[in-house]
Write a protein that binds this DNA or RNA. Structure first.
Length: 477
DNA sequence: ATGTAC
């Protein structure tokens, strides 16, 4: 794939063949060499062929191969000419990350670390097919799908102030529970309030470095402070929504004459009933994921309260922010000097709205939206802030994590016979998982160095570095 | 990511 250097952090896939727009890849001299033979670049070029795509088919520095669209891809579509594609959202609809602050210091937590990680592991149901502490009734699920995190708060999981610092306030408009299949609903009933598996985690970290004191203060972060990051999504319900939609979208692509370079890019015109139906189902799964992370937050607070003998309020366990990684949403962006309503697909990408944007919570508006970037479980994670430049160039989007550098299969092969838990414990990181296999697949070396990814987006100016977090305890599926 | 193959 031809990749032209624009500057140190921007590379162009020139518009050729049936591409309607060029591709733009955010990367760096360090990361770009590994990318040149990567099939994900072809996926970026394929997305550029879809009708109504605006500006460019974008890729973030953590890009890797995904279903149809690359993970780490961003694409915006015109309401009249454009399309909605389930592959542009992904299987784990509204997979996302949230960060909690505490008033605890590293020195207070480290002596109790084994107790804490045990309590978190008990409090947070995890693993493939994991079930929640509570099974919903069908009536409750219908409410969850429409109200999201607000439903959870109303039922005692967390506090109203949490909602102020969740994308969309924790309730995504446009949900249509009737568009969600019975099978998806059945899968969702027992799983609300469970972590899942794979790269999902709960992580206790410590603020190890501050790059932007003003933004860190606005986010309530300071050196030596203990934080908790949660990464989870819409579980089996979201998976089933995606799966159910693909067949219908494939038919729709044929019906509306959309030429597909890859069947996995199946899509329907944004104005079509098929797109409306998928949007309603996707939005329902988005709300399920918001409610899920809200319940996991409550369980996390309970575990801390139990271990430290003080309430979550006394421990200062407020929510910093909650970002979506996999979503399509209507947003207004200025394109070539004109405000346009666009449907922005982010797949393995984070919204990163800059200072002054009305959708950034008031307490953060002066510094920009918090952008939470988890790394691998052995190194570090970052807190960034969105920028005006992101709004100008990437539809207000940024990277979402380290990105894999090894397939799960390869990671298992290179970690065979090793104990990843023991290796991490020797480095001061307590890990609890019921699955040795998950730990092998998720070994730190299976991921790119997130510092390089973050330096690429910061270098490009589409986010600003605020703080670095180092892990001390991790619960995994 | 995922009742890791309906």
């Amino acid at each position: 794939m031809k990749l032209e250097r624009i500057d140190a952090n921007r590379y162009r896939i020139p518009k050729t063949g049936r591409m309607r727009v060029p591709g733009v890849v955010y990367s760096s001299p360090e990361l770009v060499d590994d990318l040149r033979d990567d099939p994900s670049l072809e996926q970026v070029a394929n997305v550029a062929q879809l009708p109504g795509i605006v500006g460019a088919s974008l890729a973030m520095p953590d890009i890797h191969w995904g279903y149809g669209f690359a993970i780490g891809g961003v694409a915006a579509f015109d309401p009249d000419e454009g399309v909605l594609s389930p592959g542009g959202v992904g299987y784990d609809i509204n997979c996302g990350v949230r960060l909690l602050r505490t008033r605890l210091s590293r020195d207070e937590v480290v002596p109790r670390l084994e107790t804490l990680v045990g309590a978190l592991h008990r409090a947070i149901p995890s693993g493939v097919g994991s079930k929640s502490h509570r099974t919903l009734t069908t009536g409750e699920l219908a409410q969850v799908l429409v109200r999201g995190a607000r439903w959870a708060v109303d039922h005692g999981y967390g506090e109203p102030a949490d909602l102020d610092v969740i994308e969309e306030g924790g309730t995504f408009a446009g949900a249509d529970p009737d568009a969600v299949s019975d099978r998806a609903k059945q899968r969702g009933l027992p799983q609300l309030g469970s972590l899942g598996s794979g790269n999902h985690f709960g992580e206790v970290g410590v603020v190890a470095e501050i790059y932007d004191p003003a933004a860190a203060e606005a986010f309530g972060l300071h050196l030596g402070q203990v934080t908790v990051m949660l990464h989870s999504g819409s579980r089996g319900l979201g998976y089933q929504v995606c799966s159910d939609s693909l067949e219908e979208m494939l038919k729709a692509s044929a019906r509306y004459g959309i030429a597909l370079p890859d069947r996995q890019l199946c899509a329907a015109p944004l104005s079509s009933p098929e797109a409306r139906r998928y949007f309603g189902a996707m939005a329902s799964a988005v709300n399920y994921a918001f409610a899920n992370r809200q319940m996991l937050t409550h369980f996390t607070r309970q575990a801390f309260a139990e271990v430290f003998g003080r309430s979550a309020g006394e421990l200062g366990m407020g929510l910093v922010y909650d970002v979506c990684h996999n979503i399509a949403k209507w947003e207004t962006h200025r394109v070539d000097g004109r405000e346009r309503r666009l449907c922005v697909h982010r797949k393995g990408a984070t919204r990163a709205f800059g200072p002054g944007h009305a959708d950034v919570p008031g307490r953060y508006r002066a510094v920009g939206q918090p952008v939470l970037i988890p790394g691998d479980m052995g190194r570090y994670s970052y807190v960034l802030a969105g920028t005006q430049r992101a709004l100008d160039e990437t539809f207000g989007s940024c990277c979402h994590g380290a990105g894999r550098r090894m397939s799960r299969h390869k990671a298992l092969a290179v970690t065979r016979g090793r104990s990843i838990g023991k290796e991490l414990a020797e480095r001061g990181i307590q890990v609890r998982s019921d699955s040795r296999r998950t730990l092998g697949e998720e070994a730190p070396e299976a991921y790119k160095d997130v510092a390089e990814v973050v330096d690429a987006v910061a270098g490009a100016g589409i986010a600003r570095k605020v703080a670095k977090l180092v892990p001390i305890a991790v619960v995994k599926g």
